[in-house]
Each structure stands twice: as structure tokens, then as C-alpha cells.
Amino acid sequence: MTAVAIASAHASIGLGGLAASGMLIAVAVAISLWRRLGLERSVLWAATRALGQLLIVGWALQLVVDPDDPLFWSGLWLAFMLLFASWTTAQRAPGVPRVFVLSTIAYLMSGLVTLGVLFGFQIYEVEGRTIVPLAGIVVGNSLSATVLVSRQLLIAAHEQRAVIEGRLALGLSAADSFQPHLRQALRTALVPQIETTKAVGIVALPGAMVGLILAGVDPVDAVRVQISVMYLVLGSVATTTTVMSLGISRQLFTSAQQLRRFDPAT
């Protein structure tokens, strides 16, 4: 029995329970009104949108989680997820050269490496109920780090132009001239994830584990699943940001080892 299969026992929240949990949204709205924050509409919109999105996802997941469902639907889901993540990255990191193509490659490579390990070592079985959620974890957790590293690299190329050209002028290659800035951008993107990993279980209980425990799974089994998920997140963020930053670094320079001009504000 695999770790995910352990979670087959489930708890159900009825519509009443769902409505009751919505009272917490009312609390947030009340606070906004009381303190005149002007965030009531935003809170309501966010809560409604999350509800709608998750209900649609829950319905759609039924198409792929049944062991009898063909993996084609999982593949289609993955393709959509990948393209949407790349599009989102392109929107959030405008000005980065060839950002859509680079981020697509980065997410793809990250998925291949991390899921390759999880499935290759048969930690999880290859089926729709594992492929889609695990790929979602890879892409979802890598997205913000990928956007961050992309922006950092573009800002470094713009603001540190004099220092980079100083190294180029000494005869260093483009890669060597940009190396310190690439290292710094990668550290900036990875350190929060490392800190989160270190603090897990002490500062906060991670969502996947909480979900499993609420669904009735033994906490020790839930922890084993959670650990594999955490390692998946750390590995995927590291892989995605590395592939992305190496790709962007190549785009920043011409074949004559000249630093192109970019405006990070665009």
C-alpha cells in the first residue's frame, strides 16, 4: 500500500460544515469594516473565487483519480498546468527575454527530475491520483521562486551593469562575469524555501499533512507523505530556478560576450 493510498479513508464536510467555515470570512470582513481597511470586497471576491476554483478542480480531478481512467487525461491536465504556469511567469516577469519558453523548459525539467525520482524509486505509483497532485506541487511551489529569480537576474543585469562590464573588460567570459549575480539571485530564491523546510513542524504544520490527518490518516503515515512532499518541493524549486537562471543568463549576453540592454521596468 502506497503512502497516498493510505489516505483513502476520508472525512466528509457537508454543505452545512462548509457554510459554517464561511463564518470565518465574515470575521475578516467585519474586521475590515471595523478598522476601515476597505478590503471587504477583496476578501469576499478572494473567498468566492477560491471556492469556485476548488470546486471545479475537485470535479475535474474526478476525471483522473480513478485507477480505471486513462493516463491521457492526466497528461492533458499536466500540459495545461505547465502552459498556464509559464504564461503566469511571463506575466509576472515582463521584460525577461524569452521568458515563456524558458519557464516552460524549467518547469518541464523540474517535473522530469523530481517526479522521475518519486516514480522511478516507486515511492508513489504512476496513476492519475498521484501524477496530477504531485506535478501541481512541483509547478505551484516553483512558480513564485521562478518569478523571483527571473526578476532578480534582470535587475542585476540593469543595476550592476558597470560591475559586470568591468569583469567583461578584464577578459572574463559572460558566464564568469555574471556568476556572482546569478549565485545571489539563486540564493534569494532558494533561502526562503530552505528556511520553510527547516521550520516545518515547529512553526507550522504543513497543509498536506494536516489534510491527511483531518481525513483520518495515521499521523505517522501523514508525516511520511509530508516529508516526501517537502523534499519534492525543495528539489523542484532548486531545479526550476537553476534551469531558469542559466537560461536567462545566456539570453542576457550576445555571442560576442556583450551585456544586452534591458529595462526591468518593462
Partner: peptide, 19 residues
């Protein structure tokens, strides 16, 4: 370019200092 730049060195108006 790398070979050229090692023979044709540059000093800039604001000296770029490395860490």
C-alpha cells in the same frame, strides 16, 4: 572578445569595484 579585452584593457570613469 576575451582575448581582445585582455590586450585592450579599459579603465572606466567610475571604477567598478568587485567585492
Amino acid at each position: 572578445p576575451q582575448a581582445l579585452r585582455r590586450q585592450v584593457a579599459t579603465v572606466f570613469q567610475r571604477p567598478p569595484l568587485f567585492p
